[in-house]
Write a protein that binds this DNA or RNA. Structure first.
Length: 268
DNA sequence: ACCTAAACCTGGGCGC
DNA sequence: TGCGCCCAGGTTTAGG
């Protein structure tokens, strides 16, 4: 469930649901997915829910924190009193003091939770869309210093945090930029366009409450799907006609092991 | 320093 | 039905 819009969707929904509550008990069904001591997060009030890039932060009144990374398939569901969700892939259950449960699911067991005592937020080194350091100027600086393909740079979490494979593909199509272009070859006008479509697409995806699809895809906190997949223009559209006016076909190629979807005709 | 492939895991979908 | 293969929102590590 991973990219910035999906994690932000969960952050907003979790904030409304759990701030002021306490975790009574932590049930760990898959030990490798829970790092640290569960005692650190039990019996203390939840003070807030934050996010940095793709990492969700549950912050406690005593200064402790629970960090969550969803990797490819991780999901977080709030199971209310009287309801039961699919628990086939539930790996950790947090029992809240109002009788509801947070289910941490992941069929592939890549995702993790980490309980941290006295959590200190650090200054992020990467710029991040939707934060005020994401300016055309900062983006230009990062692009000009890199000769790797623009799509790989967009997905490089150490440089620009929060964009993954779906949104990298969508953003480059919207900007009509070829994913294989070297980052430092983009002209100022192209960088400006790229900056604006990144913001536009990520904001729209958050409005849609994320991108959902088949079984293991992202779901909201109540397990219902988001709707940004209805707005995909190239992602998983291999062999379909380009939605632009060029009458080309969407192609799929591998870049560093990941599928890149693009229209060779209009993404120059 | 850079780039790729493999590893971490499992399930779904496809062709035969 | 079953087997083998390919696919998957991410990140880290090993190897060239």
């Amino acid at each position: 469930m991973p990219e910035l819009p999906e994690v932000e969707t969960i952050r907003r929904q979790l904030e409304k649901a759990v701030v002021g509550k306490k975790i009574n008990r932590v049930e760990i069904l898959e030990p490798k997915m829970f790092i640290g001591d569960p005692k650190v997060i039990t019996g203390t009030k939840i003070a807030g829910v934050g996010r940095e890039a793709k990492i969700l932060q549950i912050l406690f009144a005593n200064g402790n924190a629970l960090l969550i990374h969803f990797k490819l398939n991780g999901q977080l569901f709030l199971e209310m009193f009287g309801t039961t969700l699919d628990r086939r892939f539930t790996r950790v259950i947090l029992y809240l003091d109002n009788g509801s449960r947070l289910l941490f699911n992941d069929s592939r067991k890549f995702a993790w939770m980490k309980a941290i005592k006295n959590y200190q937020k650090e200054e992020p080194k990467a710029i991040e869309p939707l934060r005020n350091d994401f300016t055309v100027k900062n983006l230009s600086k990062i692009l000009s210093r890199s000769r790797k393909p623009i799509k790989l740079l967009l997905m490089d979490q150490k440089k620009i945090a929060g964009i993954g494979n779906i949104y990298a593909n969508e953003v480059l199509f919207a900007g009509r930029i070829n994913p294989f272009r070297f980052a430092n070859s983009l002209k100022p006008e192209e960088i400006k366009k790229l900056h604006s479509v990144i913001l536009k697409i990520l904001k729209k995806a958050i409005q849609c409450k994320g991108s959902s699809g088949k079984d293991e895809w992202f779901r909201q906190l109540d397990a219902s799907p988001g709707c940004y997949q209805e707005h995909f223009l190239v992602y998983q559209k291999e062999d379909q006609r380009c939605p632009g006016a060029c009458h080309g076909m969407i192609k799929r190629k591998k870049q560093s092991g990941r599928s890149t979807f693009y229209c060779p005709k209009c993404q120059k």
